[in-house]
Each structure stands twice: as C-alpha cells, then as structure tokens.
C-alpha cells in the first residue's frame, strides 16, 4: 500500500511536448494487446518459461485470494478444494521450475541476487502450503506463520512488483500513447 501511495502521490513530470496520440487507448493496449504472447519476444521465444510464469502468477493470485477466506476460517472443501489444489500444485511446480532455471543458467544466475531466490521460494511455498491447508486444517498455524513472513518481506524485495507491474504498464502506455506509437496503427 505504501508503494502504491508513493507512486500516485509522487506524480510524474509534466510533458510540455504536443500530444500526438490517444493515451487512454494506449494505456488499454498496454495492459491487454501489448501483453499478448504474440507481441513479445520474451513470450514467444520462451514459451515454456512464459507458460510457467503465467501459471505461477495465477497460483499466486489464487493463494492471495484464498488467504482472505482463510482469515475467518473459511476453507473450501470437496470438488472446489480438489480443483484449487491441482491448480496450486501446477503453479507450485512452475515456480519450482523457474527457480531451477534461475539456478542452472549461468547468465540468469549472474543477473540474480538473493532476493530473487528468496522471493521465488517464499511464493512457491505459500502456494503449496495453501493447498496443504485445504486438506490438513491443523497445518493452518504454519500457513499463517509463512504468510506473515511473506507480507513482512513483500515491501522489501522484488515481490513489490505486484504493485509496480501495473504502474509500469500504465506509464509505458502513457508514454507511447502521448507520441502516437500505441496502439499500433493498422496497415
């Protein structure tokens, strides 16, 4: 929240140049069209990583969503619990795969700092622990310890990109929209 407030309250420098494009369309494109895997080399040249990343983030948001229900002690059961567990298992494996990639690739390792590993391990564990809690409610205390650590660490390391990602897409959309680059013209 602190980071979100900072982004908004700091504002952005005034642009004195003459606007050429449509900012709202460009910002919309930045969040949707520009994120299409077909538009990004970072996606279409690395499809396994892209799919793993997508799955990992779905699992993360699902875990955070479930956390809201776990606080008052509401735990899904039956088929819902089974589906959620499968999703979280797949996302957890994806997170683990991304971690292995970071460890095993020389160049990625050289780009990484301890925060990259800590963040990955923490989030992967939360996803898996969320699935465990659904079937073993007695483990809830361990789950809450883990998620407390997660929330304490969140504003310190790279996990804060949960806020900055959306701000980055907005600023990029604004920048390209101002100059009429995005959305790309047809023809």
């Amino acid at each position: 929240m602190i980071h979100g407030v900072k982004i908004i309250s700091y504002g952005m420098p005034k642009d004195y140049s003459k606007k050429r494009g449509d900012i709202s369309k460009s910002v919309g494109y930045s969040y949707i069209g520009a994120m299409s895997p077909m538009k990004k080399e970072s996606a279409f040249l690395h499809l396994p990583t892209y799919i793993a990343g997508l799955s990992y983030h779905i699992g993360t948001f699902l875990s955070l969503f479930l956390f809201v229900f776990f606080i008052p002690g509401i735990y899904p059961t039956g088929l819902v619990a089974l589906i959620i567990s499968i999703i979280l298992l797949i996302s957890g494996i994806s997170g683990f795969g991304i971690l292995i990639k970071r460890i095993s690739k020389d160049q990625l390792r050289s780009l990484s700092n301890p925060d990259d590993y800590i963040s990955n391990i923490l989030v992967t564990l939360i996803q898996l622990m969320t699935a465990v809690v659904l079937y073993i409610p007695q483990s809830a205390s361990y789950y809450f310890i883990l998620i407390s650590i997660f929330f304490l660490y969140l504003p310190i390391g790279k996990l804060k990109h949960v806020v900055y990602f959306f701000a980055a897409r907005y600023h990029l959309g604004f920048f390209y929209g101002w100059r009429g680059v995005w959305p790309p013209k047809q023809g």
């Binding site: 504002g11 952005m12 970072s42 160049q107 990109h161 600023h171």
Partner: peptide, 24 residues
C-alpha cells in the same frame, strides 16, 4: 531522487530479473 517522479520510482522498482529481454 524519485520524489515528484512516480515514473522513475516505478521503473526502478519493476524489473524482476527474468532476463527474457536478452534476445531483444
């Protein structure tokens, strides 16, 4: 100094070191 520049604050805090930009 990111005060009064939320854009700079954003872009300095956003990279997750995925390294997928390399090929570009």
């Amino acid at each position: 100094d990111t005060k009064n520049d939320g854009k700079l604050l954003t872009h300095l805090n956003s990279c997750v070191h995925c390294g997928l930009c390399a090929d570009s």
